[in-house]
Amino acid sequence: MTAAAPVEVETAARELNPRRFKVAPYLLIAPAIVMLVVALGYPLGWQLYTSLHHYGLAQQFGRPAEFVGIENFATLFGSSETWTVVIRSLIFCLVNAGLTLIIGLGAALLMKAVHTVVRLIIQGAMLLAWATPVTAAVTIWIWLFDWHHGVVNWVLAHFWPSMAHYNWLGSQFGFYAVATLIVVWMSVPFVALSIYAGLTQVPDEVMEAAQIDGATAWQRLTRITLPLIRPVLMIVALLQVIWDLRVFTQTRMLQDYQDPLNVDLLGTYIYRVGIGRSDFSMASAFSIFVLLLTVALSWFYVRQLIKEDN
């Protein structure tokens, strides 16, 4: 019955009461707004406050926090540890997003080129990977890369015997390699299926005309297909960058399994500083930095969605 009331108000208001007409939409969005303010707005405010105060272990036991202005931010960005994490995260993000886009584009082109049956097989496989919960996915990949009994090392040992018991998660490089594989495996399906949807919109006549005019397959791809699906490419690229910058579950769970040290990315770093060291001021300041970065990166995407809304 809850759902019935608003429409009733709307229809009645439209005919009878111009003043209630104005109140109705605010009543309708009020519950959502209350939830957002309580669960996101309040923590955001606390975070802003805390990032400008000194807040450590002593404050946990009730000492009032002292206002320090932007000192926390100065300390944060004066430390080389912060910059290492930021730069490492950017590189990780760009490598992952780049690989995902290239492989996703390749998969989409394959889907377009093959027979329907084959296309359904590849789409089914992609959906399977996409649907797998991230915690299950990380668990599977740890098992695949297990150094003694993992199937990956077993295969690699046929070509390079020294790989038989290679401990992937014991080194920084191996850790990022496995994390990248998990992220790319999980992200390619969305990219591939979105680009494929874009490819189906490219008119066949255009491609045929180009072929008759003597354009090679490569020319048709770079001069016709890619420019035509540019809007989709831009959106999935942007979303991928934003999502790969916030990677948390994969790296955190890999670290739970085996931590080769110095592999923190943005999310796991905040977790370590905030939950591990209880240094709430620093964690807050760093969180605000991450939030600002996300908002800046999201700008273009949100603008596109708003365009659609109008």
């Binding site: 957002l36 996101l40 923590p43 955001l44 606390w46 805390t50 905040i270 991450v290 996300t294 949100v302």
Partner: peptide, 26 residues
């Protein structure tokens, strides 16, 4: 209305790691 929609779209993009310390404290 427009600000509300805009806010929703931005909030949807925010990473959980950007707020979870404050949410934990709350």
């Amino acid at each position: 209305r427009k600000s509300f929609v805009l806010a929703l779209l931005f909030i949807q993009m925010l990473p959980a790691e950007g707020l979870f310390i404050a949410q934990y404290k709350m």
